[in-house]
Amino acid sequence: MPTANNAIRMTEIVNVRTESPTVKTFTFTDRLCGKAKPGQFVMLWLPGIDEIPLSIMDVNNGLVSVSVKAVGDATRHMHNMEAGTLVGVRGPFGNSFIESRGRVLLVGGGTGTAPLLFLAKQLSAKTERLSFVEGAKTKDELLFVRELDGICSGKNLITTTEDGTAGLQCLVTQPLGELLDKERFDMIYTCGPEVMVKKIFEMTEQRKLPLEASLERLMRCGIGLCGSCVIGKYRVCRDGPVFTAAQLREVADELGISKLGFDGSRIPV
């Protein structure tokens, strides 16, 4: 049914910032998305091009930021956009991460770090300790290191790269295993490539630790109608994108394995 957040609002991009050779952050004004919580997403209409789901990276005084990697036609088009470009916004959609107190650990891979930075900012004042493990292919792709360094007060930020150009040369799962065995955490949050999320889920399950993971799927309607983004019985756009360990157990046969393609057939993740 008609809701305020599902109505398209036209707004201008007010700022574009380059984060890495392949990632840019776009900032726009939107009253409703300005109240979004970490984990929620927007549907961004690029007139004449496409409409795509994007995780919210930050909200600040009505300003909303999304970090976008150039991976397809729509995102490559976005990378050519400048301040002043008109876009349409629907949202915020989906659920959000549940704030935990005590000792929390965030694990981000690639642009999956963006919504976790938003979460980290909100959690930093409320938690006893906040640790962050971030992984990327190479140094240039490690996002938001300076911001995270500030939030985690240095020693609780671990970075990894596959090629060893920065931080540890390994996947995020390697230091994560050591961390989980050495320290006690009250909540673990993750977002990133689904194969990574699946591996982290297996690690937290083995150790009986709580986990919240944000998932990504092909999305069309964003409001739970079209069924394009389902995993098991869940709609990622409406029941997610954040799922608990208990929910992930229910969809373990699809997590990191298959998703629906544009034609609704099952394809590898």
């Binding site: 409409e51 109608l225 079209c226 609704g264």
Partner: peptide, 21 residues
């Protein structure tokens, strides 16, 4: 996309019959 747009008292859609055959 856009394949769905909210209207005054309903929803407009043009999914284009996506299906796996």
């Amino acid at each position: 996309n856009p394949t769905v747009v909210q209207a005054e008292a309903g929803l407009l859609n043009a999914m284009g019959l996506p299906n796996p055959g």
